[in-house]
Design a binder for these strands. Sequence first.
RNA 1: GCGGGUGUAGCUCAGUUGGUUAGAGCACCGGUUUGUGGUACCGGGGGUCGCGGGUUCAAAUCUCGUCACUCGCCCCA
Length: 416
Amino acid sequence: MNNKLQAVRGTHDHLHIDMYNYNYIVNIVSRISANYGFKPIATPIFEFSNVFKRTLGESSDIVTKEMYTFKDKAEEEITLRPEGTAGVVRAIISNGLAQEMPFKAFYHGPMFRYERPQKGRLRQFHQVGIELLGVKKEQADVEVIACANQVIKELNIQKLSKLNINSLGNIDDRKKYIKDLADYLKNYKNKLSKDSLIRLEKNPLRILDSKSEDDISIIKNAPRLNEYLNSASRENFKLVLEGLENLNIKYIINENLVRGLDYYNDTTFEFITDKLGSQSAIIAGGRYDGLMKQMGGSDIPGIGWAGGIERLVLLSTIKTVKNKHISIIPVGEENNNICFDLAQKLREKNISVEMSYSGNLKKRLKNANKLASNYAIIIGTEEINNNSALVRNLETGEQNKITLPKIIKYIEKILF
RNA sequence: GCGGGUGUAGCUCAGUUGGUUAGAGCACCGGUUUGUGGUACCGGGGGUCGCGGGUUCAAAUCUCGUCACUCGCCCCA
């Protein structure tokens, strides 16, 4: 491979198969979420940088080291979106949709994060996601999670993933907790891992899901977040869990599930897998009640999730069902026009037809075989003289002579 | 951002202690006469051995750098 021309690190070309897989995932989520009342929406791929800086948290990893930010020709600071929620919420505010609550959106598209690429982790990756705004009631949490659960189920990967769930409480409770947690951890400064010492300064919550053995043993006796939750948050969490049980959705309460974005509160959840190395989350989300207000809109609650399309594809065994397909073969260039005309007529009947561009009968049959055509229609001078065509079943080799006026009906009959 | 592994035809890989025109399978193209594919046989195209520098009479093979992929960490979908 002479790689003078290569795609930028962490970006991929999506060739046929990739696009079929991509569309497969998007179509499933689109259809399922529509059944829950979510409607499609698309927001721009880039936004003013503040849209993300203000919402994701100035100290979050995404903002501090992963954003693709640049100045455009008008000196505006622009960022390629690293996630979908902030843009959707901004769009609601920009378009004055705060009156139309509840607002239920489904979206998909590319996201950008400057990270070290790995399997299932790219710099340009793609997400599908839903957002439900305007409902504080736990019914929203349950509905949103149930939708994700159904996606997992229909992708047939429920055995490969587990739903983890936790409640982060509100911001004030969490602040109190973080302070106590940090105070506790400061007693173990000499035992904590290097990474965790840094986290202790920047974001002590993150130490909770550390993979270091030492950290884990220290955390065992640390103060617990759920003991800091106010009664409303506790009650809400309890109702969410009951709602899931009511729907027979299996979950694991994971008290150490803390998410990287500052805007989350109360319910957070992740469908995680152990099949993708370091990349465990395939669908993840949570509640973000303060986000809209923080962005300058009304005080409207929200909850949603996003799924990584590439990760979902990696986990699924996707079989794309191929439509029945026909190859039309003229024998002799002089019969091209009549064949091409027949091809058009069949296509107008919504039948998938190809006519190869060159070659004799043998080559064209070979080509038909390569295209996995179900039937070949062969028309040469001999057939035209009889006002007929040969229809060959390429699986069985069976071949019939059909008169031209009847051929479209005949093809429709054998295909459907 | 940190640490490890890998990089030879479109794909999967061989390539001996550095030594003459770099190989295989699959795929692709053509042929095995004239209007019949999927099997078989024969033939062909395609690689400046990721890229750049260094060591050497000589480098795919050693060395350094760089790019990309990959594994772990960080973090995340």
